[in-house]
Design a protein around this nucleic acid. Structure first.
Lengths: 231, 231
DNA sequence: GATTGTGAAAGCGTTCACAGCC
DNA sequence: GGCTGTGAACGCTTTCACAATC
């Protein structure tokens, strides 16, 4: 009971955290009920999409009324597996790794840093974001000690695949890759990638496009958007 | 001439930076020609997708041979508007802003930090990543002084919309939002969002799913993947 | 009267498969 | 013979529109 949910589309899974943040915030503000229309407004989406997304969780709304905020928060948390904290281990204690560990955003949102490892002897033993850097050879120990299933790759690009392999060997089953490199992992391991430079390059494309469009004619810029917009 | 390209699908635009990084790296390694098959291998994609993506740039391949690496690097750079550096301005000099400024990844990849601003008087004047923090009231000056069109939002969530408004008012036309909040911007402004916690929550979903699937039955876990995989 | 939940339609993006070219 | 470029098929996602329900 409860575990045998029907599969939720990936696009929907990616939006659930957004709904969760909004609903939790509104609940803190004393709001107890919201319609798909309101939620859509806050999320920068349209109401139909919100309703379809929420319908994958079950029929938790009330027609004519809307959704109970507290109940929905609970349901989304449960569906996302956020009923407990998930410790993460960071591989790479360079600029990026230090930045990620130092930035409190992980722990605050239920993903405390359970360990940081590096290969550089000069970094071993230093403390970053309150956590002592250990040698990458101790990765399996760190992973088992804290029961960690999520690894964060914050190495330089060329070392990323090695880091991924080490994480998988240590027993991690999800990878969040910040290194500028494509990594491969065995089937069954979840991999997600965040590349700051790629995001900027995408923005550059639209900037460049705007610029050439403007210099080629005096007509208005055609309707484009990186993602999300309105006002 | 050259500006009137046909529109490139967003999904393709998001992959061009990946091809570019791989091609540039292979070129450095002395490789002068690559097939769609090889490029796909490096990018963790399939050859058909690579060919379709590249076909939006023009017919730059040679049948029976492949693509000229140097030429393709040049074409992708040009299409993405990476023929010159784009200075960015960071709003928010807290943990996240400092981390982003300190992490050299922006400047290295053609997006030097042209300024950082904050509202907190205690932070004004401090130097982060080699750049002096200025007051947010000087935003327009910073933007015009360096001819900046990309703004990076690194404020706490509640201040993100205000930051976006200030950036747009100062003349910025692209926004990269790291704050955990949905922001809205006038039509014609490109907005992209990176939320570290959201990425982790998505991984959490698949972890949780794996866990309940395993405890509910002894059958193998059905084929799921966060994104990318193989090997 | 208001708002959900959902089939059906429309729109995008991916993959196939092969003609066209080197 | 090998590899690109692309129309056509497929599948996933979004949007529409309305019956069901409070």
């Amino acid at each position: 009971m409860a575990g045998t949910r029907r599969r939720i589309p990936e696009a929907t899974v990616a939006r659930l955290p957004v709904y969760l943040r909004i609903l939790a915030e509104r609940f803190e503000s004393g709001v107890s009920s919201m319609s798909s229309e309101e939620l859509a407004e806050f999320a920068g989406l349209n109401a139909a999409k919100v309703r379809k997304d929420l319908s994958y969780l079950g029929s938790y709304g009330t027609r004519g009324v809307g959704y109970d905020v507290e109940f929905l928060v609970y349901q989304i948390r449960r569906e996302l597996g956020l009923t407990h904290d998930w410790h993460v281990v960071i591989v790479g204690a360079g600029n990026l790794g230090q930045a990620l560990a130092g930035y409190g955003g992980f722990g605050d949102r239920g993903f405390p840093v359970g360990g940081i490892v590096d290969v550089d002897p000069a970094k071993i033993g230093t403390v970053v974001g309150g956590v002592r850097v250990r040698h990458v050879d101790e990765l399996a120990q760190v992973v088992h000690g804290r029961n960690i299933s999520i690894g964060v790759i914050a190495t330089p690009g060329p070392a990323a695949q090695e880091a991924a392999d080490a994480l998988v060997a240590a027993g991690v089953t999800s990878l969040l890759n910040f290194a500028p490199a494509v990594i491969s992992a065995p089937h069954g391991i979840s991999v997600r990638k965040v590349d700051l430079a790629v995001e900027l390059q995408i923005l550059s494309y639209y900037e460049q496009r705007r610029a050439t469009a403007a210099s080629n004619s005096l007509r208005a810029v055609p309707g484009e958007r990186g993602r999300g917009a309105s006002a």
